[in-house]
Amino acid sequence: MCLEPGSAPDRAASAPRPADGPAVDPIALEPVDEVTVTTLIDNSFDALLASRNGVERPTRGLGSVEAPLFESGRTEPGLRAEHGFSALVRVRRGATTSTLLFDTGVSPDGMTTNAGRLGLDLGDVQGVVLSHGHFDHTGGLAGLRRRGLPLTVHPNVWSRRRLAPPGVDPIDLPTLSAGALRREGFDVIERRHPSLLVDGSVLITGEIDRTTEYERGMPPAHQARTASGWAPDPTVIDDQALVVHVRGAGLVIVTGCGHAGVVNIARHAMRLTGVDRLHALIGGFHLSGPYFEPIIAPTVDALSALAPALLVAGHCSGWRAQQALATALPDAWVPSSSGTTYRLTAAA
């Protein structure tokens, strides 16, 4: 996916849409007392990372498995890391706690394996949200076969997509099947517009306004099947984020890949809710590779101006972006790793 910038028509196809002024239909997002975000799957796992205030790293010695070459016959592999993303999100209002799953990783058993090794019971998940339809965020649904579990998606999540770099045979990307998911018992809910879940305390953004001049989406090689054939799919219009308002602290935003652009996402969430403070931004920022690296600098500048208290760039963010963010926002930046829990509580 990391190709050179496209032609003028390709760039025009992903040009930003104006979104000036306050939201026409503002979202009344109920504040919460606490939100915890546990990264079940990410591209990396570092067993030596230390916990700190509000950031809980898993203890060593997770997941004892058979290993006959050791004297004890067992070893402890830790947690899985894979090119995918999944987060368990728990929100607490007073004495009531609700649990959602945001994305499910790429492999059928990676997310559930890590949850088991962390001692987390996915049986208390009340709903699943998919950030978009790419297979590195949806593959773990196979491990969640439970009748009637709500699954919130954008209608374009079923899009057939492929990678077609010049001079290379196209590579079809695995596509979700709505029929198969319904047969497995998922209650599929398609929403193009914002959704409020958990008694109004969790916002799913729906389609995101593209307002920056530099976050222009995917390269021309990323294509989607249309009625007239294959065409560039720069916007990945099904890209959406999860937003929680922590009382007195600001917005906590969880992204999957951030195909809409993390600055667009943050500004869109703030505009929708009327909350003018970004407290935390966690997930994939999609700044990896030569096609996206030119927008690292303006992205870092914009996020620096928003001044979040916590910034966790994982999955598809790339090492160059992480280095730049760590340099610009050293007090906010935290390295991502599978199994980490971020705990954000209401201001006193």
Results as ranks from 00 to 15, higher is better:
residue 3 L to R: 06
residue 6 G to C: 11
residue 6 G to Q: 12
residue 7 S to F: 11
residue 9 P to W: 09
residue 9 P to T: 03
residue 10 D to P: 00
residue 10 D to E: 13
residue 15 A to N: 00
residue 16 P to T: 01
residue 18 P to R: 01
residue 21 G to V: 09
residue 21 G to F: 04
residue 23 A to K: 04
residue 28 A to L: 04
residue 29 L to M: 04
residue 33 D to H: 12
residue 34 E to K: 13
residue 38 T to S: 11
residue 39 T to S: 11
residue 43 N to S: 07
residue 45 F to D: 05
residue 50 A to T: 07
residue 50 A to Y: 05
residue 55 V to M: 09
residue 56 E to P: 03
residue 61 G to L: 10
residue 70 F to Y: 10
residue 72 S to M: 10
residue 74 R to E: 02
residue 76 E to T: 09
residue 76 E to N: 07
residue 82 E to H: 03
residue 85 F to R: 12
residue 91 V to F: 02
residue 93 R to A: 06
residue 99 T to W: 00
residue 103 D to R: 00
residue 103 D to M: 01
residue 107 S to D: 08
residue 109 D to A: 12
residue 113 T to A: 13
residue 115 A to T: 09
residue 118 L to C: 13
residue 119 G to N: 13
residue 120 L to E: 09
residue 135 F to P: 05
residue 135 F to V: 03
residue 138 T to S: 11
residue 139 G to H: 02
residue 145 R to H: 04
residue 146 R to N: 06
residue 147 R to I: 07
residue 147 R to N: 08
residue 148 G to F: 07
residue 150 P to E: 15
residue 153 V to K: 04
residue 155 P to I: 00
residue 157 V to S: 06
residue 166 P to Y: 11
residue 166 P to S: 14
residue 167 G to W: 12
residue 167 G to N: 08
residue 168 V to A: 15
residue 171 I to Y: 14
residue 179 G to H: 14
residue 183 R to A: 14
residue 185 G to D: 15
residue 191 R to V: 13
residue 194 P to A: 12
residue 194 P to E: 12
residue 195 S to C: 08
residue 195 S to W: 11
residue 200 G to N: 02
residue 202 V to Y: 03
residue 204 I to D: 05
residue 204 I to V: 15
residue 205 T to V: 11
residue 206 G to C: 14
residue 209 D to F: 05
residue 209 D to P: 02
residue 209 D to Y: 06
residue 210 R to I: 05
residue 216 R to W: 02
residue 221 A to D: 14
residue 225 R to L: 13
residue 225 R to P: 02
residue 225 R to E: 15
residue 231 A to E: 14
residue 238 D to R: 01
residue 242 L to Q: 10
residue 242 L to T: 01
residue 247 R to N: 13
residue 257 C to W: 15
residue 258 G to P: 15
residue 260 A to C: 00
residue 264 N to Y: 15
residue 265 I to D: 08
residue 266 A to Q: 09
residue 266 A to V: 11
residue 266 A to Y: 12
residue 267 R to G: 00
residue 268 H to D: 15
residue 269 A to P: 06
residue 271 R to I: 01
residue 272 L to T: 00
residue 279 H to V: 01
residue 279 H to D: 15
residue 280 A to C: 07
residue 280 A to N: 13
residue 284 G to P: 10
residue 284 G to W: 02
residue 287 L to W: 11
residue 290 P to M: 05
residue 297 A to E: 05
residue 298 P to D: 00
residue 299 T to A: 01
residue 303 L to F: 10
residue 304 S to R: 09
residue 305 A to M: 03
residue 311 L to T: 08
residue 312 V to G: 05
residue 314 G to E: 05
residue 322 Q to A: 01
residue 322 Q to Y: 07
residue 322 Q to S: 08
residue 326 A to Q: 08
residue 326 A to S: 08
residue 327 T to G: 04
residue 333 W to T: 03
residue 333 W to P: 01
residue 334 V to N: 03
residue 338 S to A: 14
residue 338 S to W: 03
residue 341 T to F: 05
residue 344 L to C: 06
